[in-house]
């Protein structure tokens, strides 16, 4: 009897591990930024190049930092979702235009709509490195104290907005 039970148990253990492995997404890397202060930067605004924006300017607000680029294919599918979210006016959305040509970026916003309260530029990808950006689009949720509370790599879907972002934003807005 034991002769049959041992291989069976081994098989079940192996199957469970392989099953877990199958359901993991290897391109999803846990962010070391959760519950850490948002890295500081002084960034040029896309639409007003003489103006600068720093994360400190947004203290007291809950805000999203959405990393996007006109060359990014999945940003295109994400864009209508962001437009919808912006229409709700529940949260400040800052766009980080990552490694992009400002002219292309402006054209993109003119044709597809502009969900961003402000867009800032990072042509050299330096702010991107400070935020550990490795796959565009990425979205950070930052609380009133300037602490990163959530990060999503990859396009935000309307399900993500309903199930993750809106409840989190409501919770963070309620914090003092």
């Amino acid at each position: 009897m034991l002769k049959y039970i041992i291989p069976l148990v081994l098989f079940i253990i192996l199957a469970v591990f392989l099953g877990i492995g199958l359901n993991l997404n290897p391109s999803e890397i846990p962010s070391p930024f959760i519950n850490k202060p948002a890295p500081s930067f002084i960034a040029t605004k896309l639409e007003a190049t003489e103006e600068k924006l720093r994360p400190e300017d947004l203290k007291g607000q809950v805000w999203l930092l959405n990393v996007w680029a006109s060359w990014c294919v999945s940003c295109r599918s994400e864009h209508p979702v962001l437009n919808d979210l912006a229409n709700k006016s529940l949260v400040t959305i800052i766009g980080l235009n990552y490694k992009d040509e400002p002219a292309d970026a402006k054209k993109w916003l003119a044709t597809l709509g502009n969900p961003y309260n402000t867009s800032i530029t990072d042509q050299e990808g330096r702010i991107g490195i400070d935020y550990g950006v490795y796959g565009v689009p990425e979205t950070f949720v930052i609380d009133k104290k300037g602490v990163i509370r959530h990060k999503q790599t990859g396009p935000v879907t309307s399900q993500d907005v309903q199930n993750v972002l809106l409840p989190l934003i409501a919770k963070l807005q309620a914090e003092s």
């Binding site: 070391p32 490195i129 935020y131 550990g132």
Partner: peptide
């Protein structure tokens, strides 16, 4: 690098 991208 690990501060930004994790151990990975």
């Amino acid at each position: 690098m690990t501060d930004r991208y994790g151990d990975f």
